[in-house]
Write a protein that binds this DNA or RNA. Structure first.
Lengths: 355, 355
DNA sequence: GTGAATGTTTGCATCGATGCAAGAGCGGGC
DNA sequence: GCCCGCTCTTGCATCGATGCAAACATTCAC
């Protein structure tokens, strides 16, 4: 910048004024500086700006596994929303390592980012208890410390919606696939329970199958074990996310079980892959755009407020929709076409998120 | 840091020495400073360090679409490799916008990252012509400016390997699905041509189907059109990436065409989804770990060399493997199990990358 | 006891930008 | 003719860390 100033014959400060769009610069000077800027190929050093001004224009997003489609699509939505605000997203993949997550909660990304969005598998309670001194919003995870602001769908309601749909299809022996140590898993189990209880399903038909993590492989293995077991077959599988459902579908197919004829399948996430599954997968579609938008807004509000740290959480949940596809239709007369979010509007009933 | 220095009764410089692990600090002092560090909850300001030292510890990775599984898995591999070196990855999603890519090539991420990894859909020739003044490595894209260093598989060889495999299975009317404006598309088409020519397939059976982009939807639509057309059915589809293949599989299934019985399908990428497709998809698996590792090494070398900019490219290609699954086996006697990379070693023949 | 060698600590300048407030130039009102 | 107010431009200090080299302390050899 000093070079540019010399080249244009003005002070460093004036160059800064031109670059940052300060209004009181004469057109002549502005033009001359601009020319020098171009000629010398000046590039702003964002670090220096960040150091002086305290704001970097970065927002950090930490997710457990970038290669998991749900998180990739979430990241994409955040990047898109951030671009609209002129903000660059710095993505970090924690690998689900709670040590890394702890480090982030402890402020490991402060100074380099104006705010942090954390999508943790499980927020350790003791970490959730402390009040961070930087803008922070949790994505998805919920319920542990309501002290931390959070954006996500109502997991209980989402699970209940899926199970109610399966009940509507005449299923009575529904497996809940995916309980693990996570809070999300607990809540989705709870939604499953509520739906069954409301429908007065006999307790002998309540089946909760645990898994280690929410991957295709775990879904495949769990269903394989289920089919090899001695108990009566279920007539539906409610998978806690699409990856588990995809694995379940493959296992059912491998065992020659017809879907949805013998077993209906539905889950939560509605990743792109779901519409191309075999058969196309019924799933809950969280509104990722709204989630991303709201999360960034919360960060901005925190940054603007004096105390800088996360304030009391706004507890309203993000909206979601149930996207019904062939995998859960017991009387399959729907066309066997991949139906995206807009492709089958008549089949998509509104979710109950947002309240 | 100043606060810590006062609290511990030492100079700022000594605190810096402790933090950065400078060897000549007496144990007593080190302990005292460390205690103050913990007590005051000191956090390093990476911006300031980066400003002073010129190295930030960040590497930028720009990909077109994070939500595309291939790029998500590539990003995951880069993050993992970077973590081993104590480097943090800053991921940017360009949205395939060539304007954004141009901005990155022009140095939009310099100063904030020590190096840039760019996975561009199409590198504009005029942008590839200039010599960047910062460490830069291209991922995947290839052939335009051999001046820019690049890491990726040999697309021609990969495509040839797939088509040879389909020919081995007895296929003679093979569709190449995925030509578009990209250099990658051109090269994969070339590999297809080479394989057919070597096998003396009659020109009437050479079918190249263009698409707009390499997505499931484009694959679905293109195959739909193909099946609705009047020409004789192909007996194999070689899709240029897994997304196209997944779309193709769905279209074939929707039309009641048996895979691999009537039409074999194979492609390139071997994303996790491929092993769970219906039927499990034969695909070329590029060694993403090697690609990521090599790309970071190239960045380091550039950073170490005096001229700082990318030097002449090391033109050796990254290794890949052909992972054979059910979708391409004309006599399907393989178990209908999702076979991951390690799951079916006997079926996986070595690729010819790396030479 | 003296000088050298090694080990430990410190001060100062600096990276590149911006916040702040003052200085320079100029036209108009009374 | 003087002062006020406005526009445009500038100098200086500063953000938080590190490079450099000097200063100080301690030990050792002769």
């Amino acid at each position: 910048m000093r070079d540019v100033a010399e080249h244009a014959g003005v002070s460093v400060r004036t160059v800064s004024n031109v670059v940052s769009g300060y209004p009181h610069v004469s057109p002549a000077t502005r033009a001359r500086v601009q020319r020098s800027l171009d000629e010398l190929g000046y590039r702003m050093d964002y670090l220096a700006r960040g150091l002086r001004s305290g704001r970097t224009g970065f927002v950090a997003l930490a997710v457990p596994f970038l290669a998991e489609p749900y998180f990739a699509e979430l990241a994409q939505a955040v990047v898109k929303a951030a671009a609209r605000r002129g903000v660059t997203v710095l993505i970090e993949s924690t690998g689900g390592d709670s040590e890394v997550e702890r480090r982030i909660l402890a402020g490991g990304l402060t100074n380099v980012a104006d705010g942090v969005l954390l999508s943790a598998l499980t927020v350790p309670p003791e970490a959730a208890a402390v009040q961070p001194d930087f803008p922070l919003v949790l994505l998805g995870e919920h319920g542990v410390g309501d002290r931390l602001p959070r954006v996500g769908i109502d997991n209980v309601a989402a699970a209940r919606t899926v199970v109610e749909h399966l009940l509507d299809q005449g299923c009575r022996r529904i497996v809940a696939l995916g309980r693990n140590g996570s809070e999300n898993g607990r809540q989705r189990t709870e939604g499953y329970r509520q739906a069954l209880a409301a429908a007065r399903v006999r307790p002998v038909n309540w089946l909760v199958v645990p898994v280690d993590d929410w991957t295709r492989k775990q879904g495949y293995d769990a269903v394989r074990r289920l089919l090899d077991g001695s108990g009566p077959l279920p007539d539906a599988v409610f998978a806690f996310n699409d990856a588990l459902a995809i694995g379940a579908l493959r296992a059912l197919d491998a065992s020659g079980v017809r879907v949805p004829g013998e077993v209906a399948v539905a889950s939560i996430d509605d990743v792109q892959e779901a519409a191309y599954a075999h058969p196309p997968l019924t799933s809950i579609a969280p509104d990722l755009d709204v989630i991303a938008e709201r999360a960034l807004t919360l960060l901005e509000e925190q940054a603007a407020s004096q105390d800088a740290g996360p304030a009391g959480s706004a507890p309203d949940a993000a909206p979601f929709r149930l996207v019904v596809r062939e995998s859960s239709l017991r009387a399959p007369n729907a066309p066997n076409v991949p139906s995206g979010r807009e492709a089958s509007p008549r089949l998509a009933s509104a979710g109950e998120g947002g309240q």
